[in-house]
Amino acid sequence: TRVETATETAWISLVTALHLVLGLSAVLGLLLLRWQFPAHYRRLRHALW
């Protein structure tokens, strides 16, 4: 049971790290898009909202 718990903890930390990385890359990508294509971003936002 001790090994299982350790594996579970490792998986949880791995998944958390993955989610953090994905979230950060998504935010960075959005910022980059907004910085590179302001007109396109505004049009996209206008279409979405």
Rank of each mutant, 00 (worst) to 15 (best):
R45V: 07
F37K: 03
L44T: 05
V27F: 12
G23P: 02
T5P: 00
P38T: 07
S13E: 05
H19V: 00
R2Q: 14
F37Q: 05
S13L: 10
T7V: 13
W49C: 03
L22R: 01
L44I: 12
H46P: 05
A6M: 14
L31R: 02
V3D: 00
V3I: 14
V3C: 05
R42D: 11
L30K: 00
A39D: 14
Q36N: 15
L18F: 13
W35H: 15
A39H: 14
Q36H: 15
A47Y: 08
T16W: 08
G29L: 15
L28M: 11
T7P: 09
V21N: 00
Y41G: 06
I12Y: 11
H40L: 07
H40K: 13
W49I: 03
G23C: 14
W49V: 03
G23I: 13
W35R: 15
L20T: 10
L30N: 03
G29R: 01
T16D: 02
S13H: 11
H46T: 09
L48M: 13
L31D: 00
L20C: 13
T7W: 12
W35Y: 15
L22Q: 01
H19Y: 04
V3E: 00
L18S: 01
T9N: 13
L20S: 08
V27G: 09
R34G: 06
A6S: 11
E4Y: 11
E4H: 11
W35T: 15
L14C: 06
L30Y: 08
R2D: 13
A26P: 00
L14E: 01
S13Q: 14
A17P: 01
R45E: 02
V15Q: 10
T9D: 09
A10W: 05
L28Y: 05
E8N: 04
I12D: 01
F37W: 07
A39M: 10
A10N: 13
Y41R: 04
T5A: 00
V27I: 14
E8V: 05
V15P: 00
S13I: 11
E4T: 09
A47N: 08
L20F: 13
L31A: 14
L32P: 06
A17S: 11
R43I: 05
F37A: 06
H40I: 07
E4F: 14
V15A: 09
W11M: 09
P38H: 09
G29V: 14
A39I: 10
L30P: 03
V21F: 13
T16V: 12
H19A: 03
L48V: 09
H19I: 03
R45D: 03
S25D: 02
R45I: 08
